[in-house]
């Protein structure tokens, strides 16, 4: 992370998508929400039942592996 990561916004009104994406906490919030899934899209063993759930499952897997590797560096 560098000084450039400090949110550049000067406005103090409603939050924007950019506000969320440039700040560490906002980005983590969006990332967590992106990886949330609806229970009814997965079976009892957690296997995806829909195309959306399959894509989500793959994304979760990739995030897990990439995050694990980043933790090790």
């Amino acid at each position: 992370m560098t000084a450039d990561d400090a949110p550049p916004t000067l406005h103090h009104d409603r939050l924007s998508a950019e506000d969320l994406l440039v700040s560490p906490r906002g980005r983590s919030l969006v990332f967590g929400l992106a990886l949330n899934g609806r229970d009814d899209e997965f079976d009892e063993e957690g296997e995806p039942l829909t195309d959306r759930a399959r894509a989500l499952s793959e994304a979760r897997h990739d995030v897990f592996i990439a995050g694990f590797l980043a933790d090790k560096e």
């Binding site: 560490p24 983590s28 990439a66 995050g67 590797l69 980043a70």
Partner: peptide, 10 residues
């Protein structure tokens, strides 16, 4: 350091 997943998000 931030958790690995947060590093990926950045």
């Amino acid at each position: 350091p931030p958790h690995g997943a947060d590093q990926i998000a950045a």
